[in-house]
């Protein structure tokens, strides 16, 4: 299935958001959004991915 991950097109096997994190090796503290909507970590297991989904995976960064 083709999705857009952090702005880049990507071919993935994962059927849910939780599995996507695993597949792409995101193990640390991250926040997720799918199609511009926040998905809390507790809902990632249940969140099914669809073709063309835009997934954002964010992590802590320097800021002012």
């Amino acid at each position: 299935m083709k999705i857009v991950l952090n702005g880049d097109p990507k071919e993935v096997k994962a059927s849910t958001l939780a599995k996507l994190l695993e597949e792409c090796g995101f193990s640390g503290r991250v926040a997720t959004a799918v199609n511009e909507e926040f998905v809390p970590s507790s809902l990632r297991i249940a969140h099914a991915l669809s073709e063309g989904d835009r997934v954002e995976i964010l992590s802590p960064m320097q800021g002012g």
């Binding site: 702005g7 640390g28 503290r29 991250v30 995976i57 964010l58 992590s59 960064m61 320097q62 002012g64």
Partner: peptide, 9 residues
């Protein structure tokens, strides 16, 4: 802040 995960976060 929060930014796209690049490994350094």
């Amino acid at each position: 802040s929060l930014r796209r995960e690049s490994g350094a976060g």
